[in-house]
Design a protein around this nucleic acid. Structure first.
Lengths: 123, 123
DNA sequence: TCGCGTTATGTTCTACAATATATAACGGTG
DNA sequence: CACCGTTATATATTGTAGAACATAACGCGA
């Protein structure tokens, strides 16, 4: 389930440490076992994806994504248990925040010219 | 009270219709009675501030900021009752969302290398 | 009528984010 | 050993958001 109408970002040192984009990147790394594959899926340059992984790993005191160079598949990346828990918690937080303001959101949505709640076309 | 550790944005048509920046801009327009003064206070170009006001006004079905050209002060801008209510509601939503995830936030903050909760220096 | 501060808007410039491109190192496999 | 796909990283290019700059219109007050 996505969370239309709301965007949540958690901050570390003033800069976003976790948000929807990073959470999705981690999930895709977990699914594909590769930073580059995840980047391709998200139409993102490998460099950027790698930098985001760097950012994530240095933001938290425990590693979220671990990587390996070389090997049968040329190398790869995997998500730690900690990382999985982190993403799960982030989504849980999205849920909670979304639920907490659901009423307001619904009310405001009615006052929006083209609410994402009504139309999901990006145009 | 600010809301460290969290950023909330509400979306209309996929694009942010309201967020911390726009909320602050509206408040400063209300305080100063002028888009340009508010822009100066926020170290923002007048053009950008004006564009944000445009964006806000077209996002919602009712005007949030109304303007006047010419006159004793050269013109000016004021916030409608609707706009005031909107900003108040947005801050209330920040409060609710913040409260809903406060526990998670506190827990995650401990795992951040340099949490904004611990240090508020921007560097 | 002129000047002032503002809104309103167009045009140009710039800083920065993201991409694109290139290259090296790695370690399995054929 | 050569090859492959990956991580890792440096450098160059591009796209674009925002700033800077310019200008017009407005309406009041001196």
């Amino acid at each position: 389930m996505r969370y239309p109408g709301l965007t949540l970002r958690i901050l570390g040192s003033g800069n976003p440490a976790m948000g929807p984009g990073k959470a999705e990147l981690i999930s895709r790394i977990e699914a594909t076992g590769s930073i580059s594959a995840a980047a391709r899926e998200m139409d993102m340059s490998y460099r950027r994806a790698w930098q985001l992984v760097q950012s994530i790993n240095t933001s938290f005191s425990e590693p979220v994504v671990v990587t390996a160079i070389g090997g049968k598949r040329g190398g790869g990346a995997s998500v730690t248990d900690y990382g999985r828990a982190l993403v799960a918690q982030f989504h849980a937080m999205e849920d909670k925040a979304s639920a907490a303001i659901a009423d307001d959101l619904a009310q405001i949505a009615k006052q929006l010219r083209n609410s994402v709640v009504k139309r999901k076309s990006r145009l």
